[in-house]
């Protein structure tokens, strides 16, 4: 088992954003976390990365309890993440942004630079290496987030809505990139709104609603789960939906 969360609860005051959520992640998985807005998937995600301290529950990585381990040390262990709103280092070039990730595995500037270049080559941004990062648009920034995380040579990569704000063409490019990353042996956790992404990528899906896990299974299984449809579309819509394929209803293939 690579990553495991046991009974994670995260409360803000009396409000439980995540209520007793558990998950296990095996080597080679692509786990999708989905749910309507405010369902708690991002909060859960941030508990896994260490950005938020859990109220109760434990997080284990390769059998080791990392619940109280800082994000920077989790990165060192092989847990990398991207941010929903890209946290680009504005004052740096694209290459330098990626070097920050590469510096995790080498203290030498030259070595970090050559590793960063290799990552940029891999994600198809090598031509932009010396461009100032602030000149990038949303898709570029999203891709740069992934490149930086890859440069830390992670075992698990957690993508927080890496496709939000991209158009259909860009989404397909990004999906190809994620597939390529997965093929290279990196285990993935993806938080995503876009059903097409989940359907075509995830091997397993976990659905959140109001802080609780309401379903899990293969993408097919969960999208035909009445509780899931109800969570997304409401009770009446769920009844009306009987007979339609749930994927269509959720804004799937025609995206």
């Amino acid at each position: 088992m690579l990553l495991e969360a046991r009974g994670i609860t995260k409360a803000f005051g009396s409000f439980k954003a995540v209520d007793d959520a558990s998950v296990t992640l095996e080597q080679g998985d692509i786990l999708g976390l989905i749910g309507p807005n405010g369902a708690g998937k991002s909060t859960f995600f941030n508990c896994l990365t260490g950005d938020l301290k859990t109220t109760s529950g434990r997080v284990l990585f390769e059998g080791r309890d990392i619940t109280d381990v800082t994000p920077e040390l989790r990165a060192g262990l092989g847990l990398a993440r991207t941010f929903q709103v890209p946290q680009t280092f504005e004052g740096m070039t694209v290459l330098e942004n990626v070097m920050i990730g590469a510096f995790l595995r080498t203290p030498h500037r030259k070595e970090a630079e050559s590793r960063a270049r290799a990552v940029l080559e891999r994600v198809g941004m090598i031509r932009l290496a010396d461009a100032p990062a602030r000149s990038l648009g949303t898709p570029g920034r999203k891709r740069l987030e992934i490149a930086r995380a890859l440069a830390t040579e992670p075992k698990v990569l957690l993508l927080d809505e890496a496709m939000a704000g991209l158009n259909a063409h860009e989404v397909r490019l990004a999906i190809d990139l994620v597939r390529d990353i997965h093929r290279s042996g990196i285990t993935l956790v993806i938080v995503e709104h876009i059903m097409e992404v989940i359907m075509s990528l995830a091997s397993r899906v976990m659905v959140f609603h109001q802080g609780k896990e309401i379903a899990r299974g293969s993408p097919r299984e969960v999208t035909s789960n009445p509780a899931v449809i109800e969570a997304y579309l409401g009770k009446r819509a769920a009844k009306a939906a009987a007979g339609h394929t749930p994927v269509e209803l959720m804004g799937g293939p025609d995206l």
């Binding site: 004052g91 990730g101 995790l104």
Partner: peptide, 18 residues
């Protein structure tokens, strides 16, 4: 490099191991 990164976004820098 780490200092410049932290200055721009401490959260991102930490997530990358700084």
């Amino acid at each position: 490099f780490y200092l410049r990164a932290i200055k721009d976004s401490e959260r991102a820098a930490r997530s990358l191991g700084a």
